[in-house]
Amino acid sequence: MLYHSPYICNVEWGLRGAREAAERGDIIIIVDVLSFSSTVVTALSHGAVIYPYPPHLNGKQFAEQIDAEFILGRAEAAKLNKPTLSPISYSQEHANKKYVLSSLNGAMCTWAVSKVPALLIGSLLNASSVSSVVNQLRMQLNANITVVPCGEQWNDVRENENSLRPSIEDYLGAGAILSKLDGEKSPESDVCIGAFQHAKQKISEIIWECESGRELRNRGYEEDVRHCSRLDVFQTIPLLKSDHFVSVQL
């Protein structure tokens, strides 16, 4: 039985939460701070065209079909001087070029629930801007809103264990967005906003030291963590249109 939230603004975790929101017909904001959401926002700000694609399907074949470049892993792409899941690997030279971007969390959630009234990408980088656009869309579409912090995946998941690892960077990104959304908030949303407001003044330090931040830093991607921890530095608002993102103007 489908549960309809009595609140305008909601928060749901991961792939299962995204599906719940999609079945309700909500406007969905996908939040994957380290790094899918931040990468999409940054790439679109430089004019790149991004196609999200799930990792369990053949992304290389899809890229060939649409005459796009398939995004490789960070280490492999860096050796070839190509754009990666790292947001700082994008620049103006990638403008108007098409890329297929795959990830376990953000891209997977996006692909799985693409048939909704509107699906947007949010991060700390564009929190206020994406909220402004979604406030307008809600009035146009007469739909509720669900912000989906994607979280991470545990390694070596054992039988009967849940693979989702909630991550504070996505929770704080969701809180930043929810804090600017209009309409009655669910209790879960209120707590998420409270977490962001408490952490706002030291958010870069918190993300630097959190588990996901340490993981990236230990792999040599300190600049990714710094970049993704910045608040409201872009007005780029990625909106899924068919199978790729377009940038909505405020």
Rank of each mutant, 00 (worst) to 15 (best):
A63P: 01
A63Y: 05
A63T: 06
A63L: 06
E64L: 08
Q65E: 14
I66L: 08
D67F: 12
D67V: 11
A68S: 02
F70S: 01
F70N: 11
F70Y: 14
L72T: 05
L72I: 00
R74N: 14
R74I: 07
A75P: 01
A75V: 15
E76Y: 07
E76D: 13
A77T: 08
A77G: 15
A78T: 04
L80P: 03
N81K: 15
K82C: 04
P83Y: 02
T84K: 08
T84N: 12
L85G: 14
L85V: 12
S86A: 10
S86H: 04
S86W: 07
I88Q: 08
Y90S: 10
Y90A: 03
Q92F: 12
Q92K: 15
E93N: 12
N96R: 15
N96Q: 14
K97V: 08
K98A: 04
K98G: 03
K98M: 02
K98V: 04
Y99S: 05
Y99V: 00
V100Q: 08
L101W: 07
S102G: 10
S103L: 08
L104P: 13
L104K: 11
G106V: 03
G106Q: 10
A107L: 04
A107V: 03
T110V: 13
W111G: 13
A112M: 12
A112Q: 01
V113F: 06
V113T: 11
V113R: 09
V113K: 09
S114Y: 08
S114P: 05
S114C: 09
S114H: 12
K115L: 12
V116K: 10
V116Q: 08
V116P: 11
P117Q: 07
P117R: 03
P117T: 10
P117I: 04
P117S: 07
A118T: 04
L120Q: 06
I121Y: 04
G122M: 02
G122N: 00
L124G: 03
L124H: 11
L125C: 07
L125D: 08
L125V: 13
L125A: 14
N126G: 03
N126F: 11
A127Y: 11
S129D: 09
S129Y: 05
V130N: 02
V130S: 00
V130Q: 12
S131P: 04
S132V: 14
S132T: 14
V134E: 02
V134M: 06
V134G: 00
V134T: 13
Q136H: 14
Q136E: 15
L137R: 05
L137D: 00
R138D: 10
M139S: 15
Q140M: 13
Q140S: 09
L141T: 04
L141F: 13
N142Y: 13
N144Y: 01
N144P: 13
I145W: 01
T146M: 09
